[in-house]
Amino acid sequence: MAAGGDHGSPDSYRSPLASRYASPEMCFVFSDRYKFRTWRQLWLWLAEAEQTLGLPITDEQIQEMKSNLENIDFKMAAEEEKRLRHDVMAHVHTFGHCCPKAAGIIHLGATSCYVGDNTDLIILRNALDLLLPKLARVISRLADFAKERASLPTLGFTHFQPAQLTTVGKRCCLWIQDLCMDLQNLKRVRDDLRFRGVKGTTGTQASFLQLFEGDDHKVEQLDKMVTEKAGFKRAFIITGQTYTRKVDIEVLSVLASLGASVHKICTDIRLLANLKEMEEPFEKQQIGSSAMPYKRNPMRSERCCSLARHLMTLVMDPLQTASVQWFERTLDDSANRRICLAEAFLTADTILNTLQNISEGLVVYPKVIERRIRQELPFMATENIIMAMVKAGGSRQDCHEKIRVLSQQAASVVKQEGGDNDLIERIQVDAYFSPIHSQLDHLLDPSSFTGRASQQVQRFLEEEVYPLLKPYESVMKVKAELCL
């Protein structure tokens, strides 16, 4: 049975990233139509530049190519590739079939990587351009969430054990800070992308030097003109047959890092959902379990974690691919890159769409948070109580021993009897502590235990987050809708 299948058929496997999760716009960027249309555009740009620099290419040939950029006979191309065992030459023939007058000058002087690699770089750039505003929107939604809850005390956790208090907004800023680093890295790697350009079979530009009869300047002009037509500021000066596969490492490393950030955020949300302090959106008709109707599973956060793990592992592909590119190139890269580049971007696209949807509907339960604080705060307040007693004339050592005994009794009630923490009640009825009984409410005010959390939130948002989001103001209103 021949390899390949009808990918629109229910009898043929289709990647869930495309069929179930990723956005239509990201799927289109990695589609065959987008790819092969870009090949034709690159052939047109090459012909236009070659004509401008004096090669015998007519206006009629150029116009014929322009008129057929979208006229792609995919069936013919597939048949040609089956016959020739070469995808680029299959599309040269297919393009030439609908451009008979231009057929002889299509791909003039070029090698397969002229269309293959340059198209990949265009796709990487455009895919990054799709991700950047999506990530900015996630940051914006979380920034709104953090600002609104900047002063809401909550129990902090280290080692997932109760620690000092923080605020809900401050905790959210930990998430935002990681995503801001990801946004900066995505922008950097996007701006650092260079075009492969017009380089020939081993990167020496020998074929173009021959076409222009040894004119170095025209060869350099050709490279520059096509690079500018493709919208790049610069091209690699040095290439082998391909652009260095280190570029793929750079791009997928940034995406993998984004995956790590999203995994951490969504894990926190899942843990908070278990504590009943916070939940992701839950639709009115949504079913959490087929057997347990009360369940409210954090399905979206779980999906993000599941896909983020996949995204983090994909960076190993370009690392290994770059390491086995012998001399000017081997074909070890080809099949692998067809999979890992598309999957990385479709996965990143999915987790950003999902995280935006989550961040637009996060639900906080202040009463649950308050109750958990009441359970733990008495123990945390013991040092403040000791200091207040010393100020009232008591002995630190005597007070410490009193607190120690009462704390152990209260802990026994919590752990052995399943009761509430009654340390404060014990202190309130103990005559030894009568000098500070009137101060206990103040000493137990949760806001006095959150330090500068709310001020940190305000400063972080104003100095770091809002300036970073400013270039994306025009796209901030787009909502994230999930079908599944």
Rank of each mutant, 00 (worst) to 15 (best):
A78Q: 12
P24A: 04
A308W: 05
L482E: 03
E48Y: 00
G4Y: 11
L84K: 06
A102P: 02
R190L: 05
D178W: 03
I62C: 07
S447L: 10
D87P: 10
D332F: 11
V168Y: 11
M387L: 03
L69H: 04
W175G: 03
F195T: 01
V324N: 04
L255F: 14
W39D: 04
E376V: 13
H7F: 15
S290K: 09
R190V: 13
I123D: 13
I287T: 04
K75Y: 13
H107Y: 03
E481Q: 14
L346E: 13
L46M: 10
W326L: 14
R372C: 15
D332L: 12
S140G: 14
A235Y: 07
D120P: 02
E280Y: 00
L469C: 03
D420R: 12
L130R: 07
V368L: 07
I385H: 03
H263M: 10
K147D: 10
L44E: 12
Q375V: 01
I265Y: 10
F345Q: 05
Y114T: 01
P366T: 00
F36I: 15
Q221K: 13
I123P: 03
L423H: 12
Y13N: 14
K477C: 15
W43F: 07
S447M: 12
A273K: 06
S306Y: 09
T119D: 00
R40D: 12
A453Y: 05
L186W: 07
F449Q: 13
P24L: 12
R137E: 12
K147Q: 02
L135W: 05
C266Y: 14
A18Y: 08
R194I: 00
S9T: 04
D32R: 08
G288V: 09
M299P: 07
R137S: 10
C113S: 10
Q177V: 06
K147T: 04
R33C: 12
V92K: 03
I105A: 00
C266S: 14
T204M: 02
L271H: 02
T52A: 04
F74H: 00
E213T: 05
V262Q: 09
A102Y: 03
G197F: 03
E481K: 02
E481A: 15
L211G: 00
A102M: 05
F212S: 03
Q458S: 13
P471E: 00
L311E: 08
F460D: 14
D215Q: 11
D248E: 10
G394W: 14
T204K: 01
L183V: 08
N68I: 06
S261G: 13
E80T: 13
E328Q: 00
G116E: 04
E80F: 10
N353M: 14
D332S: 13
A322R: 10
E279S: 02
L482T: 02
L484S: 09
R141L: 12
N353C: 06
T450F: 06
R234K: 01
K229D: 05
E60P: 07
D120T: 06
E283M: 14
A90D: 03
E328K: 02
T354A: 12
S474E: 01
I339Q: 15
Y13P: 15
T94F: 05
H7I: 01
L341I: 09
K75T: 11
N118K: 04
T167K: 03
L255R: 02
M76K: 07
Q177P: 02
V247I: 07
D182C: 02
G203S: 03
N185G: 09
S9Q: 05
D333V: 03
Q61T: 13
L174M: 14
L132E: 08
T201Q: 07
I386C: 15
L222I: 12
C483R: 12
K187Y: 14
L406V: 02
A78E: 01
G240I: 14
K246S: 09
S15R: 10
A102L: 07
S140Y: 00
V315E: 07
D349R: 09
G200N: 01
K199A: 06
E48N: 10
T267G: 07
T227N: 01
L186S: 08
T119M: 00
G8H: 14
Q63R: 10
S19P: 00
R149Y: 01
V92H: 00
G4K: 10
V413L: 07
G419F: 15
H400I: 11
V168C: 02
S301A: 03
E481D: 10
A388S: 01
Y243L: 08
L46V: 11
P162N: 04
V88N: 01
R14T: 13
K66T: 11
L440G: 04
R137Y: 01
V390A: 05
G169R: 09
P162H: 10
A49D: 11
I237G: 10
W43H: 12
E328F: 10
D120M: 09
L352E: 02
A392F: 13
A49R: 02
D248K: 15
D59C: 13
T204W: 12
V138N: 07
R372L: 14
W45D: 08
E250C: 14
Q285H: 00
M26F: 00
E220Q: 09
G240D: 02
L44M: 11
A18K: 15
V254D: 11
K233G: 02
K367Y: 06
D192T: 13
M312F: 00
D248L: 14
P133K: 04
I62E: 02
T154A: 04
K391P: 02
V226S: 08
L440V: 14
T58D: 14
V457Y: 00
S15N: 14
N68C: 08
V168I: 06
C399I: 09
T58Y: 12
I287P: 02
L355A: 14
D398T: 04
L179P: 01
I424T: 11
Q184E: 05
L130F: 13
Y365E: 04
D332Y: 01
A2D: 02
S9I: 12
C98F: 08
A110P: 03
I369F: 05
Q63W: 02
F379E: 04
I123V: 10
M225Y: 15
V390L: 06
I424Q: 02
I237F: 05
E277A: 06
K470F: 15
A163V: 00
S23R: 09
D144W: 04
S19L: 15
D117R: 04
S151A: 08
T38F: 15
T167I: 06
T227W: 05
L252N: 05
P24G: 13
P281D: 00
E463T: 11
Q320L: 04
A256R: 06
L311K: 07
N274E: 04
T330S: 11
C340A: 14
L469Y: 06
H437K: 12
